[in-house]
């Protein structure tokens, strides 16, 4: 079961990461196009807002992928001194707590998106709605929580070198 979930999560995250890549290319493109247009005398006045929105996608979409790849760093001074059992317990605790926390973050970000949607909030210059971007951020936090859940489930099984 865990292996299946793990595989599913890896594939899903790879896809999200792909979209993150597209957002990064888009971000570079928008910023460059804006510079060019300004030099040519017809600046695109809302470019910086779009840059911000795409920036959010660039950070959020790889959230889960970065966790799968253990890119989020931690302080490791005591790491090597813990016994395998302690390590497993600490990992289980961390994964569980962080999972719960990111469920909260996803829930609150989603709530925020719904709130700005309901009150019809638009961006300041372009006057476009932007809650879809906020929903994507919320979804990505949820995906990170899912990865953390799988991490937790994995710690429940005895590891190699441990009786």
């Amino acid at each position: 079961m865990i292996i299946g979930l793990d595989k599913f999560s890896n594939n899903l995250n790879r896809w999200f990461n792909w979209f993150g890549g597209i957002a990064l290319v888009g971000l570079t493109g928008i910023a460059c196009a804006n510079m060019l247009m300004r030099i040519l005398g017809s600046p695109f006045k809302g470019a910086y807002e779009l840059v911000g929105f795409f920036g959010a996608l660039v950070v959020a979409l790889p959230l889960g992928y970065a966790q799968v790849n253990r890119s989020h760093i931690s302080v490791d001074i005591l790491g090597r001194r813990y016994s395998a059992k302690t390590k497993r317990f600490v990992n289980a605790f961390n994964s569980l707590v962080c999972m719960a926390f990111f469920v909260l973050v996803a829930w609150q970000s989603g709530g925020y998106a719904t709130a700005i949607w309901k009150r019809g909030e638009t961006s300041e210059t372009l006057r476009i709605i932007y809650h879809p971007f906020v929903y994507v951020v919320a979804l990505c936090c949820l995906l990170l929580a899912f990865v953390l859940l799988i991490d937790f489930l994995k710690t429940l099984r005895p590891q190699k070198g441990e009786k």
């Binding site: 971000l27 920036g55 950070v59 959020a60 973050v105 609150q108 709530g111």
Partner: peptide, 15 residues
């Protein structure tokens, strides 16, 4: 956590 997550992730200065 709801509002800051969006406002930091979408901050123009951080891009």
């Amino acid at each position: 956590i709801g509002t800051e997550t969006w406002s930091i992730f979408s901050s123009y200065g951080l891009t």
